[in-house]
Design a binder for these strands. Structure first.
Lengths: 339, 339
DNA sequence: TTGTAGGCGTTATCAA
DNA sequence: TTGATAACGCCTACAA
């Protein structure tokens, strides 16, 4: 790994290094002839400019950071991490921006706020809504450092964000169940403190009211075991819903299992629909009606909003909401689909 | 975002900037007194050194890159991306190394080889085995650029790698089924060209031979639909195995469904066990016996091997294999477990 | 123990 | 159209 620098090229081409620099940036003030000559030599000497030196000189890192909390193994976003990264890269990459992943866990003086933000290692930040403390949000805001949150940060003015329209999603699921003839609904899953649960259950209630129907909401961890337990409880309690909406595929899975054991027919007796569309959803018994959330799109919006803020073309606060898509499958299919 | 530099601190503290630099690096040749004074001023002025300037001066980027092919949505590793990243970060982070994710898709002169490697944007690289072309591998090797592959690169000398011991894993699954009384096995799933399939099926055959048993191998895409189809075919063909090993949870899921429809009891008539342990595995009917692959550990090894090569403490080629763990569940539980 | 000066590899500003 | 020369912000001999 011997390093060829701009000086070597300049010497070899018999020009000043400033000229070489201009050639690299395709400046119009360089004669086509020298351009050709210098380029030939660069190729021949296998030269590539040092990214770091360029960044120092340009006073820009050309990289954006994604903050994660690696200690949280069960976050909603983990499952979609790869897809979101893909979305981000699809807009940052073509703009020649690098993406660095950083764990907020590391504390002490070497935390992300110093290393990335104050140390100007990145030009902007994307993170999941619940990762930052209130103080960190305020600090970023006060530094006027560009960042975009995935998921809306509660009680915080001034933070731009992208999120799935969860309330609307609940409405879509509810409407769908009602269309299929359900009249007594239950919403299962979600932690009361989680804002995702909050917006989804709010949307559920709002939609129920619009239909003039009743329904219950039961919280639990987003696991199959909990979905199973809660369903058993629900049935034992005597409240017999004819439609169930779950907060995740895992919960839905537990629900299906419990219903099957209790000899309820799905969708005959009870319809089941859920948020998220995991690869297994089409293969449960019966196949699960899902609300697809486009997380790639989430990454795209997060990144493009961030880039706008980095290049200064947009400054205001913006909170985008993305529309989910209903994917009807057999678990709610009481009437034939019109084709 | 006004920037405080080392010069500002030097001026404010009335010392030379070299002294400030020494203070930052806690050099022993600075009096405790000035150290205190300079540090106080740094704190007060809210100073953080520029990562980029430091990198230029130190001639080291202090970052490692992870190469991915974002266009491949269905890779084995995607599902474990977050976990692997976690493993990598857990060793690179404490060493004050950053991690940047880079998409190889972007081609042209601005590809990763120039940007990251020749441009010295990263000190080392980690990637999945099938991402690089033969030429790229050779180029990295020839540049003596440190990199570690996740999964062994076939036909390539000189590349260090970490991988799950897939052949051994097949043996573990086979042994387990045989212990449970199975005598006629089938291995389902895997693409013939994929090296993961190759090592797994090889291990399967080897283990069968050791037991003096017979068995079949059928390839297919790693989806539930294919597992379902293949199982139906297998049963229709008249070959009735009493034990099935699948290459992924998805395939296993399809298998279970097909067996259920055909009125085979699991594990009574046929046992089913699979590679990988997805969150849903304990909730299939019956719960699925799995071979757990520790992908966090995979990240840890990849990163620590890379760091050794970056700091020069290790130079040779090394191919580590990690041991999988069998997680017995009801799908293979014919006899009571001895506790 | 501290300061001076040069270097890391670019970009950018003027003159020439 | 080109070339000196000074940033960019830090590190590191070497000198004081």
């Amino acid at each position: 790994m011997k390093k060829v620098t701009i000086n070597d090229i300049a010497r070899a081409a018999n020009v000043a290094k400033s000229t070489v620099s201009k050639v690299m940036n395709d400046a119009p003030t360089v004669s086509p002839d020298t351009k050709r000559r210098v380029r030939a030599i660069m190729k021949q000497m296998n030269y590539t400019p040092s990214t770091i030196a360029t960044q120092l000189a340009r006073q820009s890192s050309s990289t954006i950071g994604m903050l994660v909390d690696l200690s949280r193994r069960a976050d909603f976003l983990n499952h979609f991490f790869y897809t979101i990264i893909g979305g981000i890269e699809s807009v940052a990459g073509p703009l020649h921006y690098e993406l660095t992943i950083s764990n907020i866990q590391s504390s002490g003086p070497d935390n992300f706020m110093n290393r990335l933000v104050r140390g100007r290692k990145v030009d902007g930040l994307i993170m999941e809504k619940s990762i930052l403390t209130r103080e960190q949000v305020d600090e970023l805001l006060q530094l006027e450092f560009p960042f975009v949150s995935i998921g809306r940060i509660a009680d915080t003015e001034g933070v731009s964000s992208v999120d799935i329209d969860n309330a609307l999603g609940s409405g879509m699921l509810t409407d769908h169940l009602v269309e299929q003839g359900c009249r007594k609904l239950a919403f299962l899953g979600g932690e009361p403190a989680d804002s995702i649960f909050e917006s989804r259950s709010t949307g559920f209630h709002r939609s129920l009211k619009a239909h003039g129907l009743e329904g219950t909401v039961s919280c639990c961890e987003g696991s199959a075991a909990e979905g199973y337990r809660l369903t058993k409880e629900l049935l034992a309690s005597g409240y017999a819903p004819d439609g169930i909406i779950t907060i995740s595929n895992y919960v839905a899975f537990g629900v299906l299992q419990a219903l099957q054991e209790a000899n309820f027919r799905v969708p005959g007796d009870i319809c089941v629909a859920t948020f998220d569309d995991y690869p297994l959803a089409p293969y449960t018994t019966p196949p699960l009606t899902c609300l697809h959330l486009d997380t790639f799109e989430l990454g795209i919006h997060a990144a493009s909003m961030l880039m706008e803020r980095i290049d200064g073309s947009v400054t205001g606060v913006e909170n985008r909401l993305l529309l989910p898509t209903l994917i009807p499958r057999a678990s709610t299919q009481r009437q034939r689909l019109k084709e």
